Computed example of a mutant assay.
Amino acid sequence: MARFEGVYVAIVTPFTKDFEVDYKRLHELAEWLISQGVHGLVPAGSLGEYASLTAEERAKVVETVIKAAAGKVPVAVGSGAPSTQQAVGWVRHAKEAGAVGVMALPPINYKPLEHEIIAHYEALASVGLPIIVYNNPHDYKTDLTPDLLAKLAKIDNVVAVKEFSGDVRRMHEILEKTDLEVMVGVDNLAVEGPLVGVTGWIAGVPNALPKEGVELFNLARAGKVAEAMALYRRMLPLYRYDASPQLVQAIKYMLELAGFPVGPTRPPRLPLPQADYAAIREAFQAAAGGR
């Protein structure tokens, strides 16, 4: 049985109008997502704006989500940081706070050599929490290829990969070459992934439309292709925003449209042009229209 199975929402971090972290709203959002049927939560990822948080804020965000989850669903914590030492510190904090695992980027400040990548993950693994390796070659300089993942899979506690390359062929190859659990990393492969054997999805847009995300993933895993595709085609215009650099602004606006406002993004992320919001609103109304 997969350790990280089903739909894990990469939860956003709510802010007040003055850009302070709104921990009360974060707790409410986590509870609401759980009530809507999501299988797990991932705080302090890119969608959670981890890079804009102070160390104190980040720790409290993680602790707030774990407290809100209250053991009802597992929490896997983002560990991205500029140095291996800092990342190890966030893995330790996640373990102490009660997380079941971490979602771990490779070194992020420059293009590392293979032995540096391996050493980085060995250091993270030494803490003793299960690790979801996070491959995001679009936003970072490293591409964790299937062959490199096969080497990382030999490290104790490296058990899964969030695959964000956007190439469904990668999923096939990872499943062939490793024993890692594969998790869809980008929303617009949410059907293709489970159809090829993926067991999890670290999701963005399901912050705002969680029931639809869970239903879609379950339909695809069950092989109910016609039903899945009918829902997927409705959701795809929204899901494509998850692959955009402006995904945080877009998804926070979707939450507002869903009746669950979570405040602004923290600079340097600024509001989008009005034409973008109009396009998101149109796509959201079409996606949510089948409720």
Score class of each variant (00 low, 15 high):
Phe260Arg: 04
Ser244Cys: 07
Lys224Asn: 14
Lys252Gln: 12
Glu256Asp: 04
Leu257Ala: 07
Ala150Val: 11
Leu255Thr: 00
Pro237His: 05
Thr178Leu: 11
Ala190Val: 11
Phe217Arg: 03
Glu192Ile: 01
Ala222Cys: 10
Val191Ile: 10
Glu215Asn: 08
Val184Tyr: 03
Leu219Phe: 14
Arg169Trp: 15
Gly166Ala: 01
Leu247Gln: 10
Tyr232Glu: 11
Arg240Pro: 02
Glu227Gln: 04
Ala160Ile: 07
Val161Thr: 06
Leu180His: 12
Pro206His: 11
Val158Cys: 13
Met171Tyr: 06
Gln249Met: 12
Gly223Lys: 09
Glu256Cys: 02
Pro206Ala: 04
Leu219Pro: 14
Glu215Gln: 11
Lys211Leu: 01
Gly200Gln: 14
Ala153Ser: 14
Ala222Thr: 09
Ser165Asp: 05
Ser244Val: 00
Leu238Gly: 02
Val262Ile: 11
Pro261Cys: 06
Ala153Leu: 07
Ala190Arg: 03
Pro210Tyr: 04
Val205Glu: 02
Pro194Val: 13
Val184Leu: 04
Leu247Tyr: 11
Ala243Gln: 06
Ala243Leu: 07
Ile174Asn: 15
Leu180Tyr: 13
Lys162Leu: 01
Gly259Glu: 01
Arg233Gln: 08
Pro237Thr: 08
Trp201Asn: 09
Lys252Asn: 10
Pro245Thr: 08
Arg233Met: 03
Pro237Tyr: 05
Met229His: 12
Asp242Tyr: 00
Gly200Ile: 13
Ala150Lys: 13
Arg240Cys: 01
